[in-house]
């Protein structure tokens, strides 16, 4: 069992190397010859145990340990608070330039400093690799009179502004609603809840007219017809939901809106160590465990490494600032 799984992993890693650019090959080679962890590695999770990002970090940790990707042992450290600012503040204060520390980062850590400039997050770390993108969908209750996105859009446009109540489960959902209402040219009335689960509960109870959320929480409800998906906030349809059109298809010009999750090291870490971690994380991303985790979460695999990741984040930041009406 272990052997076959390991072979599978190696095969996947090899194919990933072939697929990635020559630079990737070079990096992987470099990682083997250059720096390696000198003591126990600390994986800092700037979120509370049990959330989506915490689970991702635990999967990364599990893959690193099970597939023996590093020569030292790995310690997980949850430092929750302040939308990631507490954990990353801890890294900036106590783990400065420490190559034996890695940190989980996600879209929230990018939004936090936009809303609270005092809370410094991404500027304190060096992004290494992105693993996945979470998608957003437009949902209504299964009993709703709206069968298609067109019907809903037509009705929203016909009624006065802010008459449609949409539940949200956090800042990223509110941003998705901004994307949606800007494309519509009409304001929607967001009723803000504290989590995706509460937002879904309000939709199921018929307390709101619709919601925008990650597919994860809604999959079981979709299957039973309790909720209906009307549109996707990305450029392609989901393989798991071939009948749900993209919002572009229904004539709404919305940008590709997704949330990312990845890994970073402290700022100004030695370049050799950065390359080492890029190599390790590429192997993690190629692992079947990671692929299964992402598929189970109905998210999109998006391995983006090193400089490409930094450039990707810069583009995301611009998008987020625009949506939150907080220009740099």
């Amino acid at each position: 069992m272990t052997v076959s799984r390991r072979d599978l992993m190696l095969g996947a890693a090899a194919s990933a190397c072939l697929l990635s650019s020559g630079g990737g090959m070079l990096r992987a080679a470099n990682a083997q010859s250059g720096w390696a962890p000198t003591r126990d590695v600390e994986l800092v999770i700037p979120f509370a145990a049990g959330g989506g990002s915490d689970l991702l970090a635990r999967v990364v940790g599990k893959i690193i340990v099970e597939e023996k990707l590093i020569p030292q042992s790995l310690v997980l450290n949850n430092r929750p608070g302040g939308g990631g600012a507490v954990g990353i503040g801890y890294v900036a204060a106590s783990r400065r330039k420490d190559p034996n520390t890695i940190i989980l980062i996600n879209g929230t850590t990018q939004i936090t400093p936009i809303l609270n400039p005092a809370a410094r997050t991404l500027s304190e770390v060096q992004p290494i690799m992105n693993f996945m993108l979470d998608d957003f969908l437009l949902f209504v209750n299964g009993d709703s009179k709206y069968k298609t996105a067109q019907e809903l859009i037509a009705d929203i446009k016909a009624k006065p502004t802010k008459t449609f109540n949409f539940s949200t489960g956090g800042t990223t959902d509110i941003m998705a609603i901004t994307v949606f209402s800007r494309a519509l040219g009409k304001d929607i009335n967001p009723v803000n809840f504290n989590s995706g689960g509460e937002s879904l509960t309000a939709l199921l109870g018929g307390h709101v007219d619709g919601t925008i959320g990650n597919p994860l929480e809604f999959m079981g409800q979709l299957a039973s017809g309790k909720v209906r998906a009307l549109g996707v906030f990305r450029d392609t349809r989901f393989a798991a939901m071939p009948d749900v059109p993209t919002l572009k298809e229904v004539g709404l010009d919305v940008p590709n809106f997704q949330m990312w999750r990845g890994i970073a090291v402290p700022k100004d870490v030695d370049p050799a160590a950065q390359l080492y971690w890029q190599g390790v994380m590429e192997k993690v991303a190629a692992s079947p465990t990671m692929k299964k985790y992402i598929a189970d979460n109905v998210a999109t695999e998006a391995p983006i490494v090193g400089a490409d990741f930094v450039a990707f984040l810069a583009a995301q930041e611009k998008l987020y600032r625009g949506l939150l009406a907080k220009p740099a």
């Binding site: 689970l55 689960g197 509960t201 999959m219 079981g220 409800q221 979709l222 299957a223 309790k226 979460n297």
Partner: peptide, 26 residues
């Protein structure tokens, strides 16, 4: 229903998903 009733059940729901189940009315 597949909706969390408390902080802990939210995590158990996450666990169901990791096991490849689809929490929901079915």
């Amino acid at each position: 229903l597949g909706v969390p009733g408390s902080g802990t059940t939210a995590i158990i729901l996450g666990a169901l998903i990791m096991f490849g189940l689809r929490p929901g009315p079915e």
